[in-house]
């Protein structure tokens, strides 16, 4: 057994006792009943289960929760799909994040199972570009590289990619010409 404590979406979680062989996604689902992070393949290929780990140096990285044990996240700060939108005092969602907004307005997803992975990966990308803007001509290549590992079975990727491109172009400071 291990004792795990971490921050999820700015809320302190734990300490909680878990078995040592529990993967992070299993911890989210079975211990915390947070099921917005989706199980797709269980072997790290499809990237549906991606969450964000916020490092102490201010950078963030996307990490797959199906192949990483819960101990990897002990003491870390993470963000999951449940943490992006703003809620009112009744716990109702009132405002989506810009990434979430661009995805729904572009009809980017269909079944929605891969969506949380795409939202998290794109959020990491956008935050990175804020620190390190890219030349506008690189935009498609940068998106290809950032999202290229994520599998979507319904949409053909087009409306995800277009949405991200639209968002990057529309957000000040992400690109230079």
């Amino acid at each position: 057994m291990s004792t795990i404590a971490l921050s999820i979406n700015n809320k302190a979680i734990g300490p909680i006792e878990t078995s040592d062989d529990i993967m992070m996604i299993e911890f989210l689902h079975e211990h915390l009943n947070m099921t917005g992070t989706k199980f797709g393949c269980g072997v790290g290929v499809c990237h549906a289960c991606t969450v964000i780990v916020d490092n102490e140096d201010g950078t963030s990285e996307s990490v797959r929760t199906c192949i990483n044990g819960v101990s990897r996240f002990n003491g870390k700060k993470i963000r999951t799909i449940e943490g992006h939108a703003k809620e009112n005092e009744f716990g109702e969602i009132i405002k989506l994040s810009p990434v979430q907004e661009t995805f729904i307005e572009n009809f980017s997803f269909q079944c929605g199972w891969c969506t949380s992975g795409f939202v998290n990966e794109t959020t990491v990308l956008v935050e990175r570009l804020k620190l390190m803007p890219i030349h506008v001509s690189e935009i498609e290549t940068v998106i290809d590289k950032a999202l290229g590992d994520h599998i979507c079975r319904c949409t053909g990727y087009v409306k995800y990619y277009q949405a991200v491109k639209e968002l990057i172009l529309a957000t000040e400071g992400l690109t230079r010409s």
């Binding site: 449940e82 969602i93 989506l96 307005e105 929605g112």
Partner: peptide, 14 residues
């Protein structure tokens, strides 16, 4: 403007 299920899906609802 968006799918009826869009908000639920993009925010990871059950």
């Amino acid at each position: 403007k968006f799918r009826l299920d869009g908000v639920a899906k993009v925010t990871g609802q059950k």
